[in-house]
């Protein structure tokens, strides 16, 4: 088994509900604990297994089929857009929830000197054993996706567990044996499943929609898939055609009736 998430960059509205649900579940779970520091103070901070970041893609004509906007070059001096498709706005907002990718080549595991970080052979989930971790931060350095955060209270590294304490829990009804973030998502942008099974929902979605390469050149082979944003449907505006004499007469009669 190769369990992981499929996250739809098209339908995600960036509401942070998955992060809140994650915090709620893992904050009290046996596996985790995600403390807050100065939660109601001036500089609130804390450990989150899932963080949502918001980006804008500019200048990709696929996301502005109407070619609306001005033909002027982009006014922002730091963004010199040139050539075809430089109209403003040609932009798309993408919200990117990021948590552990449960990579196949999990470098965070191989660099760990204590063996506290491990990748489970049976389902590919990457976990941290808090009874071995010495809090050296080296695994966080090795992770390109910022998935690992130090719990300053316990002095050990914390990360997404793929809700390993939910997904196998026989006490839960079957439809709830999913990560908390997946259950919480109001737009169903998050899906959970087995990537080794070609018939699973996540495998099918990744195959149909295509997955974004998130720093794939580093060779970590992330398991989670970010489903590519779809190009919006091309809508041609239907302008009224130049009307003949009879049309004009009909319009005149219509106006008379409406008086």
């Amino acid at each position: 088994m190769r369990l992981g998430l499929a996250i739809d960059l098209d339908t995600c509205v960036g509401c942070h509900a998955c992060a809140v649900a994650c915090k709620e579940w893992n904050g009290a779970s046996l596996m985790g604990g995600a403390p807050d520091y100065d939660a109601h103070g001036k500089a609130p901070s804390g450990v989150w297994y899932n963080r949502i970041r918001h980006f804008e893609i500019e200048g990709d004509p696929a996301f502005s089929p109407h070619r609306c906007g001005s033909t002027e070059p982009h006014p922002h001096p730091n963004l010199p857009l040139e050539g075809e498709g430089t109209h403003v706005p040609l932009s798309k907002t993408v919200n990117v929830p990021m948590s552990c990718m449960h990579c196949e080549e999990a470098h965070c595991v191989t660099v760990c000197p204590t063996g506290a970080s491990y990748k489970r052979a049976e389902d590919g989930i990457v976990l941290v054993d808090p009874n071995r971790c010495m809090g050296c931060n080296y695994c966080a350095w090795a992770c390109p996706y910022g998935a690992r955060e130090l719990d300053e209270n316990a002095g050990v590294m914390k990360k997404c567990t793929l809700c390993v304490d939910r997904i196998y829990d026989q006490q839960l009804p079957e439809e709830e044996r999913q990560p908390a973030c997946v259950l919480a998502c109001p737009t169903h942008a998050r899906h959970f499943g087995d990537y080794d099974d070609p018939q699973s929902k996540v495998s099918q979605l990744a195959a149909q929609r295509g997955r974004q390469s998130m720093l794939d050149e580093l060779g970590y082979k992330p398991t989670n898939a970010y489903l590519s944003p779809r190009a919006p449907a091309q809508v041609m505006p239907s302008l009224p055609v130049r009307s003949g004499l009879s049309e004009k007469a009909k319009a005149f009669v219509n106006r008379l009736i409406q008086l």
């Binding site: 970041r53 918001h54 980006f55 804008e56 893609i57 500019e58 200048g59 990709d60 004509p61 696929a62 996301f63 963004l79 857009l81 040609l90 907002t93 993408v94 990117v96 997955r211 974004q212 390469s213 998130m214 794939d216 970010y226 590519s228």
Partner: peptide, 11 residues
């Protein structure tokens, strides 16, 4: 972000 065309900026 795996964006091949266009530019990305953080919002």
């Amino acid at each position: 972000l795996g964006v091949k065309q266009g530019r990305v900026r953080m919002l």
